[in-house]
Design a protein around this nucleic acid. Structure first.
Lengths: 171, 171
DNA sequence: GTCTATATAGCGATAGAC
DNA sequence: GTCTATCGCTATATAGAC
């Protein structure tokens, strides 16, 4: 059910992610959905909690990455089919729809990433640059909407970008 | 009326920017609002058209900036009270709400900026970096919501960031 | 647990008085 | 031009059968 809600948020926007549509996409009735999630807010808190857990796992993976955390961070910011990136985009949709708690959650997630990256960047300006490039990648993915390929660099272009960012920010 | 609609989108999200709320904020009745804008879609097209006009003016100003277009572009991407930046955030809210035309408009705007900046960057990777930093700044401003100060660098920190970006991307 | 009603409220849009 | 009143639709949520 959370998967269905998430997919609706990503593919059709916040407005279309109704209880009715979520229930239909999950293959249950509205009543059945509301038995598990007593309100729409509970559904929203569900994907926020999922995002939090995925970020915790990602920060662990990032810190252990053989490439170095910065390369890992930038590279994975451009993925679209990853569960983590889907969770971020879904929560971002909620935040832009006016849900305050979603915005707070996104800011907290960003801060956790920044804390993990700070030791690997030359100074605060370098950290700002890395974070902003990542934010930019997410923003463009979020605008993708109907699965249309966005202007985000991919493949070799992405590797060149990572090299440029690393050169500019290396501790 | 467009101002009221824009302010509601920015401050309270797409969900709260209803015809009713817009009319109330503009000091007219729903009927009065619908006399000027025959539908909600007309209201949305109104701010999209306004965004387009503001971007045209901004690209002209950017190209003539004494600092150079890249510095101008990054610096002005972090403003929040500027009419242009407010228009971008408002249209971005619409896009994330599922309005396809708003997403198309944002992509077109981004492409126009990229075309104007391309001659001033070393290569396509450098251009990507500049665009992504700008996108990241907008994204963070968009998450600001209720006017809370975001994690966007300001003042001297912004100037240092601009210097770093210019060093990394100069043609 | 999952379903089919149904209650309640808010949205966009129309009609017609003034 | 601007208003009030109202229609038709859809959203969230509840009640109760199975």
């Amino acid at each position: 059910m959370l998967d269905a809600f998430e997919a609706l948020l990503i593919d059709d926007g916040e407005r279309a992610a109704t209880m009715d549509a979520t229930a239909r996409a999950a293959g249950v009735s509205k009543g059945g959905l509301l038995y598990h999630f007593g309100s729409k807010q509970a559904l929203e808190e569900g994907i926020i909690a999922r995002l939090d857990a995925l970020v915790t796992a990602d920060i662990a993976a990032m810190s252990a990455s053989p490439d170095g955390p910065v390369a890992y961070f930038v590279r994975t910011s451009a993925m679209t089919d990853d569960p983590l990136d889907r969770a971020i985009i879904a929560v971002s949709r909620l935040a832009q729809g006016g849900h305050g708690t979603a915005g707070v959650a996104l800011r907290s997630v960003r801060e956790r990433w920044a804390d993990a990256l700070r030791p690997h960047t030359a100074d605060d300006t370098a950290l700002d640059l890395v974070m902003l490039v990542s934010d930019g990648l997410y923003y463009n993915n979020a605008l993708g909407g109907g699965g249309v390929a966005g202007p985000v660099p991919a493949g070799p272009a992405m590797e060149t970008l990572i090299a440029l960012v690393e050169r500019a920010t290396k501790a």
